[in-house]
């Protein structure tokens, strides 16, 4: 029995966009972290079954891969390993820590630059989608809006973690909260940030 329904799979297959190899690599490293090498092997096997085989060692950090690799592995992992939303958030934070891109970006991120850099660096990850980053330092709130991008619930949680980690760079983590939600327009999501 497959974890992903055929219908859903067909839908995902139709999606357009690429993801940079380094992000994939980092994400899979998390799986190894949590489920060990055997866990990753299992995932890779499932991905292969779904038509998207890809071994960790083969991933080229600088190459672009179909975005399905990202989406599917997110979903599969949660389902296969029974990860909680919290774990997925953790996954997102992981993603914001160690990969090559984030290393480039984090050096430049500060209160002033973050808004400008957001979309620049979004593009480093994905070839599709637009991001808008707004922060009100006085009131300690912020909104991140992502348009034109398909985000499934699991991905939402992932991104909550991701943005959380980014925010850590510039604000105290003590009361930091990031909450993602769908908003009216199609393929548009917002993340409410408070600290």
């Amino acid at each position: 029995m497959s974890l992903i329904s055929k219908q859903f799979l067909e839908e995902i297959k139709k999606m357009e966009g690429e993801i940079i190899g380094s992000s994939l690599k980092t994400d899979r490293e998390f799986i190894v972290e949590k489920e060990g090498v055997e866990g990753l092997s299992k995932l890779e096997m499932e991905m292969g079954k779904l038509g998207y085989p890809l071994k960790q060692a083969e991933i080229d950090k600088y190459k672009w891969y179909p975005v399905q690799q990202d989406f599917l592995s997110l979903m599969l992992a949660q389902k296969m390993f029974n990860w909680s939303d919290k774990t997925v958030q953790e996954w997102g934070r992981w993603g914001a820590k160690t990969n090559f891109i984030i290393k480039l970006m984090s050096r430049l991120v500060n209160k002033e630059t973050i808004s400008k850099l957001a979309s620049k660096y979004w593009r480093r990850y994905y070839t599709k989608g637009e991001i808008e980053y707004k922060l009100d330092y006085k009131n300690k709130t912020g909104i991140t809006t992502i348009r034109d991008f398909v985000i499934y619930p699991v991905h939402l949680h992932y991104l909550e973690g991701y943005f959380y980690q980014i925010m850590c760079l510039i604000v105290p983590a003590k009361d930091l909260k990031v909450e993602g939600s769908e908003v009216g327009e199609l393929n548009t999501h917002q993340f409410k940030i408070t600290w």
Binding site: E33, R93, W94, A96, K97, T98, K103, S106, R107, V109, N110, Q165, C168, L169, I170, V171, A173
Partner: peptide, 30 residues
């Protein structure tokens, strides 16, 4: 490497060995 807010951005292996923290544990912390 820390950013102006004092958050750890990058660490090398010697740093990880010294502090006992792995990269993923320390990056993003103050």
């Amino acid at each position: 490497t820390i950013n102006p807010s004092g958050v750890v951005l990058v660490v090398n292996s010697a740093f990880q060995n010294l502090t006992g923290y792995r990269e993923v544990e320390i990056i993003g912390e103050k």
